[in-house]
């Protein structure tokens, strides 16, 4: 069973993504975090790392960039696929994000169904 973690401060986006994922595969376990800090708490408390993390960058409390920095040393994330989804084509700090090295894909909001299936199957 795959676990997916959605990190986004927008309630609507989280709702949309979780419904989309359930529609693709009802067996998926979908976790939600409002910001980086909540996401860190989830990672710390759960036994198994998620297979896919969908991460927003611009969030209050702890933004996506800070979240990546905080977790760059975690070994349990080495099998986790991290996808950045953002509202703009070119996130301002893309180079800095790449330097951290955890991120596999960038995707413009909203993630379409076919794209999501591709992320899940990889």
């Amino acid at each position: 069973m795959s676990r997916i973690l959605i990190i986004d401060d927008d309630d609507g986006t989280r709702f949309y993504l979780s419904v989309l994922l359930k529609k693709i595969d009802p067996t998926l376990e979908v976790l939600q975090a409002h910001d980086g800090e909540e996401a860190c708490e989830i990672l710390d408390t759960s036994e198994e790392a998620p297979t896919l993390i969908i991460l927003d960058i611009n969030m209050p409390i702890m933004d996506g960039f800070e979240f990546l920095k905080r977790n760059s040393a975690r070994i349990d994330l080495d099998k986790t696929r991290i996808v950045i989804q953002s509202s703009s084509e070119e996130p301002a700090d893309r180079d800095a994000i790449n330097a951290i090295g955890l991120v596999h894909d960038y995707c413009l909001k909203p993630i379409r169904k076919d794209v999501m299936i591709r992320y899940l199957n990889r």
């Binding site: 927008d10 609507g12 986006t13 949309y16 611009n58 509202s87 703009s88 909001k109 909203p110």
Partner: peptide, 14 residues
């Protein structure tokens, strides 16, 4: 543009 697009995109997909 970023912050205006965000809720708009969200509404469209919803």
């Amino acid at each position: 543009s970023h912050d205006l697009r965000s809720p708009l995109v969200s509404a469209i997909s919803l």
